[in-house]
Design a protein around this nucleic acid. Structure first.
Lengths: 164, 164
DNA sequence: CATATATGTCAACATGGCTGACTTAAAATC
DNA sequence: GATTTTAAGTCAGCCATGTTGACATATATG
């Protein structure tokens, strides 16, 4: 607690401070995924389905290879999950307009509903944390997380983040 | 990018802002675990082994149930990983002093070495991100992540975070 | 026309979650 | 002191989701 309250100089990066940073990330991620995971289990889905639904919802018309690029999994892994979602009517694909080899992925009405239900909890959690922590803290959260991302990925991630 | 640079008022929590918060967490976690995962694979271990080694290293003498409480997995899941680590000489256990039913877990020399190798990368990553982001940002990172953790967990987490 | 690319698919394998059932040893309680 | 609860371990089986490798098809591109 001490350091969390007192403020400290991060140029003195004690191993202790770094380990707190590691652990906070672990605990936050653990709890962040907890509830959506529970909802998904009831539907016979897993976290991988959530990620796919999330990023298609966020980027309607995204292609398979773009999705692979975000998720960093093999196409075989993605395929299993994606086929499942298509089969159950959460996702559909249209042939690419520019390039007809591509599949442009979109959520169906059912998919949109699921996406909303799943991310609702996470958005609420972030909203609460943001409100409690304040504007400056939010800016810090964003800066540090961005710094944790692989250097060669940052540009790409930042481009994707500006959805509006 | 715009928002990341310009600063914004998080009391206006637009869905857009919240989704950026979600995605940053996803990308950071994805890259945070990437390299250690690769090292582990070479040794025939997985991420679960990392977590166990990490938290035993951080809390020498931790009991099995305390570890379960941190990881939030079943004892059968933990058992598989833990037995493996014990069999290969990374972890050993002593009978509890207060309560002889307990097993107090510790890293062997070999375990300490592995732990160091694995967390080195993550500590370096955090250190870099902290340095680039600055002291205030670090404080914000900590505040927001703590706010993301389940409310009923926060107390316990904070107690565990003060290792020194 | 030849080659490269985007996607899909089949098969096999490993990790690591889960549930459920049951055991043992020690502590705690009545 | 007998009973109950707790800490830990184990066996068996199931499922989700990651991997590699091989191969097929349609379309773009040189």
């Amino acid at each position: 607690m001490a350091d969390l309250k007192s403020g400290f100089n991060p140029l003195f990066l004690r191993e202790e401070d770094l380990r707190q940073g590691i652990e906070l990330l672990f605990y936050a991620y653990r709890d962040f995924t907890g509830r959506p995971d529970a909802i998904l289990t009831e539907l016979g889905f897993g976290r991988a389905h959530h990620r796919v639904v999330y990023f298609i919802g966020r980027n309607p018309g995204i292609t398979v290879s773009q999705l692979l690029d975000i998720l960093k999994v093999t196409k075989q892994s993605l395929s299993r999950v994606l086929s499942h979602l298509v089969a159950e009517g959460y996702v559909f694909s249209r042939t690419g307009t520019r390039d007809r080899r591509q599949r442009m992925l979109e959520l169906t009405e059912k998919g949109l509903e699921l996406e909303r239900k799943l991310s609702e909890n996470q958005r609420g959690r972030i909203a609460r944390a943001y409100r409690e922590a304040g504007a400056e803290a939010v800016e810090g959260y964003r800066k540090v997380l961005l710094g944790i991302i692989d250097e060669e990925e940052r540009e790409r991630v930042m481009e994707r983040l500006v959805g509006d």
